[in-house]
Amino acid sequence: MFISAAIISNVIFDWVPTIDGFVRSFFTWTNRNPELVFVGLDNFRRVLIDPEFHLAVGNMLFFLVAGLILMIPSVATAVVMFRIRGARLQYLYRVLIVLPMVVPALVFSLLWIFILGYDFGAINTLLDDLGFGRVPFLGDPELIKWTILLTGIPFVTANTVLIYLGGIQAIGDEIWDAAKLDGVGPIRKFVSLEFPLILGQFRLTIIGVIGAAITTYATQLVFYNPSVHSGIMTPGLLMYFKAFPNTGAPDYGYAYALGLILFIVALTLSLTALKLLKNRD
């Protein structure tokens, strides 16, 4: 009796869509003609040969590589925070880093879109005043990827920083005192003490970053406009637009098949993460 609400809600609103996602990937139907027609692997074939999909994978890889490189600032921040002497000051930084987490990410994206606008955006006005000329941050398909990255400045994720910090703080003060006595320099301290301490967390974060690059697309959706289509389309966003197109009828078969492909890729990663966790124990 105690568990029924949890189990029933999970089965209906989580398991049912999951199984449905598997089964109906092999069917096609439309809103007007809801009769299911079995098409075998045809939906998958349509996804895999679609040039749009290839483009999306390319863009995804860009965000993936960028995401991996941009893990560095969070590591650096955690180390710097750890080295700050004085508990109060460290706590203050902790508070200030966590603060933006309670603001919807959408607010930041929308603000950036406003600032980076071509005609009225404050940054373009500034560039114009300085004599550089205006930059189409939001309207150029080549530039849009970099614009999206730019809006991530300073590339520090509060969650990740605090997880790393927890890792570094896991060992006692004696080790640090001993290192100090031995005259270990700041770089050496990072390479042989701090980084090994967070290696487990770092590995998991890598999986998280890869998973996020494959499965998240809310930012791309907010920055989307038709003129940057080719530069911003990722597989997740493609799935979204197939199911919820701005114009025309949804292509559910395609969206289901693409969703399943993304699911399998992300699941493989998730299982790898699990394996890494086990190895650590």
Partner: peptide, 20 residues
């Protein structure tokens, strides 16, 4: 039944959940 679901990525759920 619940535990397995914890490791399943939610990315595919959007469209089937919408249909549901």
């Amino acid at each position: 039944l619940l535990f397995i679901k914890m490791f399943m990525p939610g990315v595919m759920l959007l469209v089937p959940s919408f249909v549901l």
